[in-house]
Amino acid sequence: MDCYIYFKAGTALEEKVIAAEKSLHQQVLAQLGVRGKLQRRPESANDLHTWMEVYANVPDDFAEQLEKLLQQTGLAELQYSERRAEYFLDVDVCA
């Protein structure tokens, strides 16, 4: 199962968001063994960037574990909008 999390944050906070995300991704890799990827939409709207965290092959309790790690980064205080998480499973269409 893969996890996609998106949120918005002010464009002026870009460096702080990246630093907090780096810390979060390091903790997720060290404690959960899951490598994350960070993406941002190329354009901004109303002085806001839309950010996307992508985590592949996450465990069933990933949301709870990630929430605990998130609190240690200060990322939640930088966000303009709520974090929205969506989960997807791979489907084998070649079988």
Rank of each mutant, 00 (worst) to 15 (best):
T50I: 13
V34D: 03
E86M: 04
T73W: 07
G10D: 02
Y55I: 00
T50H: 05
E15L: 05
L69Y: 08
V34Y: 03
T50W: 01
H25R: 12
K16M: 08
K68H: 12
A9D: 01
Q71Y: 01
L78T: 08
D2E: 09
L38I: 05
D90S: 13
R84I: 14
V93E: 14
E86H: 02
T11W: 00
G74V: 08
V93L: 14
P59R: 01
L89T: 12
L69F: 09
Q71L: 04
G10P: 01
Y6A: 02
L89P: 03
A76Y: 06
D92C: 04
I5W: 00
Q65R: 15
L66C: 12
L24E: 04
W51Y: 14
Y87C: 10
A85C: 10
R35D: 05
V58G: 01
P42V: 08
C94A: 13
F62N: 05
P59K: 00
A9T: 05
N46C: 10
Q71T: 04
H49G: 03
E15N: 13
A9S: 15
E53G: 00
E14V: 09
Q79G: 05
V34W: 02
V58N: 00
R40F: 04
R41S: 08
A95S: 15
L89Q: 13
V34S: 04
C94S: 15
G74H: 06
K16A: 12
R83C: 03
R35E: 10
V34F: 02
D61P: 04
C94K: 14
T73A: 09
L32V: 06
Q26D: 14
L75I: 03
V58F: 02
D90N: 11
H49S: 08
R41I: 07
P59F: 01
R40W: 02
I18L: 13
M1P: 11
M1T: 15
A30P: 00
L89R: 08
C3N: 04
K16W: 03
E53Y: 00
D90Y: 07
V54W: 00
V58A: 03
A12R: 13
D61W: 05
M1K: 13
P59G: 01
Y4W: 05
L78W: 06
G33V: 06
N57G: 09
L70Q: 09
D60T: 07
S23D: 12
K8R: 15
H25S: 11
I5E: 00
A76I: 10
Y55V: 00
A30I: 02
Q79L: 11
G33D: 10
H25T: 10
S44W: 01
D60K: 08
E15T: 13
E53W: 00
Q79T: 10
Q39E: 12
Q79E: 08
P42Y: 06
L89E: 15
A95K: 15
S23Q: 13
L78G: 06
S23W: 04
V28P: 01
D60L: 06
Q27L: 12
G36H: 00
E43N: 13
E67V: 06
E14M: 09
A76W: 05
L66R: 10
G74T: 08
R40L: 05
Y80W: 03
T11V: 14
M1D: 13
D61H: 09
D90G: 10
